[in-house]
Design a protein around this nucleic acid. Structure first.
Lengths: 228, 228
DNA sequence: GTTCAGATGGGTGTATACAATTATACATGC
DNA sequence: GCATGTATAATTGTATACACCCATCTGAAC
């Protein structure tokens, strides 16, 4: 039998369900749907020109992604993210990114390391110019490369989940240019620790990188929008 | 608006879909369905006396739980767990259980602590008698109490996921009575560290507890069944 | 004014029909 | 013999119909 890919992802980007799933998901992450807003199957289906069936399936999946909550016989609602949830996720990520960096020391490929180097180099340029948009994109890229480099589908997928989950919050919490610069320096340190194969150091730096990102967010008070 | 529960769980235990979901899930965890076995909607529906609709929805959810993989237009297959996946999960859990124990130091309730004490006490009794069945059940219970005690829905849910995910493997890897005794001693240490409010110690002990559990599993060579 | 039974409307839950896709078997050509 | 094409069966993907559940409103009884 063929050796199928084991990661748990929403397959089938090209089916109706896949398209509906992606659409609703993006709308939630981009704030089109607010917290606790009800998502009615019929309305969404009508909007996208499909029947309720693929919409239902998409919603059921989004429930497990954590973006939607379904109450039996009542409906689907956009989940709220509390300040505590955000804090918890950052702390969970700090542990996991640390583990990820540790594993990356052993498993990173030449290409991945070069991609990281390029990323850090480029980010310095954009930081100097104050290009926030590009900084954010490069930040995403850096982390995805790191997740890749740990060579663990389990961990990579988990970290991707959380990373994307937080996009809802990060979209609002525009980080300052100062934080961007500091963050990129941390990226450089992490990369160098990995290149040197220093697993203990890499784990510690990556873990602290997350804690710093969270602390910055709190000090900016920007995610209070979501607090109760 | 009502303050709905935010955890991402499969709600609706009493709908057909909920029952189908639970049934298939249990069958996979109990080894009724083997790795890479195909799960056909029509057959399962017929067996359970329901139509394909709830079966489909259950399968789509199981996909995100990681127990099933769906290939578009092809079908649903039971996912395989490789030896590496098991190792990765144990390492991930070691970090997260550590974090969980740390948080429990601050948030554990009187009842939860008493439940842990009772658990450890009872486990000593069963260890002496060689009651493996009860030991396994108490082990599950201890961890669930710990997950509860950290007072984080995010972390609790994540750990529950992994815990249950590994049941497939643990069912086969019957641990020895020696490991049971050692494991329970570790439980006691963790509990005492939490009771003393020593977060650093609790985190370290809980983290090592997982690594030990994994090491024991490897030394018994029992999960090689799943290796490639 | 308050409470509660019943009607009602809007929504989800499930079954079923049909369309689209894929697997299988078999024939055909080289 | 082997590869390739084609017909057919089997299976999944989607639309639709209807049953069922629940929130809301109404009105009568008190």
């Amino acid at each position: 039998m063929k050796d199928y890919d084991l990661t748990r992802e929403v397959s089938d980007k090209y089916s109706l369900r896949g398209r509906v799933f992606t659409k609703i998901r993006d709308d939630i992450l981009n704030g089109v749907y607010k917290e606790h807003e009800e998502l009615k199957e019929a309305r969404i289906g009508k909007e996208l020109g499909v029947s309720r069936t693929p919409v239902r399936e998409a919603l059921r999946q989004l429930e497990l992604e954590g973006l939607v909550q379904i109450i039996p016989n009542r409906g689907a609602f956009v989940t709220g993210i509390s300040a505590k949830d955000v804090r918890d996720i950052y702390m969970i990520r700090s542990r996991l990114e640390g583990l990820c960096a540790r594993w990356a020391c052993e498993h990173i490929t030449r290409e991945q390391l070069e991609s990281m180097e390029e990323n850090v180099y480029l980010a310095e340029f954009h930081a100097g110019k104050g290009h926030m948009e590009q900084m954010a994109e490069l930040d995403n890229q850096f982390h995805h490369t790191l997740y890749r480099a740990c060579d663990s589908k389990m961990l990579e997928h988990l970290l991707n989940d959380y990373h994307e989950y937080l996009l809802r919050v990060r979209k609002k919490a525009l980080s300052s240019i100062d934080r961007g610069t500091a963050s990129n320096k941390e990226h450089r340190s992490i990369m160098e620790a990995i290149r040197a194969g220093n697993a203990d150091l890499a784990e510690r730096l990556a873990s602290e990188h997350m804690k710093n990102a969270y602390a910055n967010m709190v000090s900016n008070g920007l995610y209070d929008l979501y607090g109760k």
